[in-house]
Amino acid sequence: MKIIEFKRQTKNKKYYSQKMGMLNTKVTSIKKYVLGIPVKTLHTYRETYYGQIKNCEDCKLYA
């Protein structure tokens, strides 16, 4: 077992936009683990409808 690990996890989340309506996107987060316990989320990003990669902090879309 490693002491420090970095894991990437992808989840499906729903976002709402006035122009496009409800969107189901894959949101990927990179987390730092110490002895198997999650310590910190380093980065979160998502893929847009058009295939571009965007930082989740830049786009605040809520349902």
Rank of each mutant, 00 (worst) to 15 (best):
Q9V: 12
K7L: 04
C56V: 15
S17G: 08
Y50S: 08
V39H: 00
Y45W: 14
K14W: 13
V39T: 06
G21M: 06
D58G: 11
S29N: 08
N55I: 14
G21I: 03
K14I: 13
I30S: 01
F6W: 10
I4H: 06
K31M: 10
M22L: 07
Y15A: 02
K32T: 05
T25L: 04
M22T: 05
M22G: 01
R46P: 03
Q52T: 14
Y49S: 04
M1V: 03
L23I: 09
K26E: 10
L23M: 12
T28F: 09
I3M: 02
K54T: 12
K32S: 01
M20R: 14
D58P: 02
F6P: 00
Y49M: 10
R8P: 03
Y33D: 05
Q52Y: 12
Y45P: 09
E57N: 15
S29E: 08
M1E: 04
Q52N: 11
Y49W: 13
K19R: 05
Q9R: 06
M22W: 03
Q52H: 10
Y15H: 04
Y16E: 04
T28R: 11
N55C: 10
P38R: 15
M1N: 02
L23V: 06
Y33H: 09
T25V: 13
E57K: 15
L42R: 11
M22E: 05
P38N: 15
P38T: 13
G51F: 15
K7Y: 03
N12Q: 14
R46Y: 15
K31G: 04
M1K: 00
T28K: 09
S17K: 10
K54F: 03
Q9K: 08
I37W: 00
K11Y: 08
T44H: 05
G21L: 06
Y15F: 10
Q52E: 13
K7G: 01
K32G: 00
Y16C: 02
T44A: 08
L61Y: 12
L35W: 01
K2P: 01
Y15Q: 02
K19P: 00
T25K: 00
K54N: 09
T44P: 01
D58Y: 14
N24Q: 09
T41P: 07
K19V: 04
K26T: 08
K60I: 14
K2T: 05
K54S: 07
T44E: 11
E5W: 02
N24M: 07
V39D: 00
Y16Q: 03
K2D: 04
C56M: 14
L61K: 12
K11M: 06
M1H: 02
N55F: 06
L42E: 10
G21W: 05
I4A: 07
L61N: 02
F6M: 10
S17V: 11
S17I: 12
C59V: 15
K13R: 13
S17N: 09
G21Q: 10
Y50A: 03
H43V: 11
I30Q: 04
I4L: 08
Y16T: 04
P38L: 15
M1C: 02
N24W: 03
M20C: 07
Q52S: 07
Q18A: 07
Y50P: 00
Y45R: 11
K19G: 02
I53Y: 08
I30K: 08
N24T: 11
I4E: 04
R8L: 15
I3Q: 05
M1P: 01
G36C: 00
K31E: 07
